[in-house]
């Protein structure tokens, strides 16, 4: 059987997150092909349901990349985003899924080096943990 490709989804805010990724690639960084970036206007828009649906649809790890908390384009958006992500993490640990599959990061649009770190961290998590195993005890 061929090795399964890991799947990582990244919700990036349009103002800083996606710009951080763009700067990284435009300065020559290569990252893992399994990473799928999805634009959201602000990380405050990301709801728990989006992260959970992504995991349900087959993502092995999900990260949310927002502005630095003191320099958020929408002032408090990335703080709200972090609250949402923390809530999802606590929910995941309750149902027996590793909470480190979901992570929130902050970067400004000029922190290209940080994007590579984030992506390598999340692809490592996805490769290490593999696909989400349904619990056998029928709960």
């Amino acid at each position: 059987m061929a090795e399964r490709n890991p799947k990582v989804v990244g919700f990036c805010c349009e103002e800083h997150g996606i710009e951080c990724a763009n700067l990284a690639v435009r300065s020559g960084k290569q990252y893992d092909v399994s990473v799928r970036l999805v634009r959201v206007p602000c990380t405050g828009r990301v709801d728990g349901i989006h992260i959970l649906k992504a995991l349900e649809d087959g993502a092995d790890a999900v990260f949310v990349l927002g502005c630095l908390e003191k320099n958020c384009y929408y002032d408090t958006g990335s703080i709200e985003g972090r609250k949402r992500v923390d809530y999802v993490k606590s929910m995941l640990s309750q149902v027996g899924i590793e909470p480190e599959r979901v992570e929130m990061f902050n970067a400004s649009s000029s922190m290209a080096w940080k994007f590579s770190e984030i992506v390598s961290k999340m692809t490592d998590v996805a490769k290490r943990l593999g696909p989400i195993e349904p619990r056998g005890d029928g709960q």
Partner: peptide
């Protein structure tokens, strides 16, 4: 300003951000 913070946090899912709705994103 169209950031969607209220949309993400609304416990009743009563608010939608046009062109960034839950259905569209999912």
């Amino acid at each position: 300003q169209g950031c969607g913070m209220c949309v993400g946090i609304c416990p009743s899912k009563a608010i939608e951000l046009h062109n960034y709705t839950d259905d569209q994103l999912s």
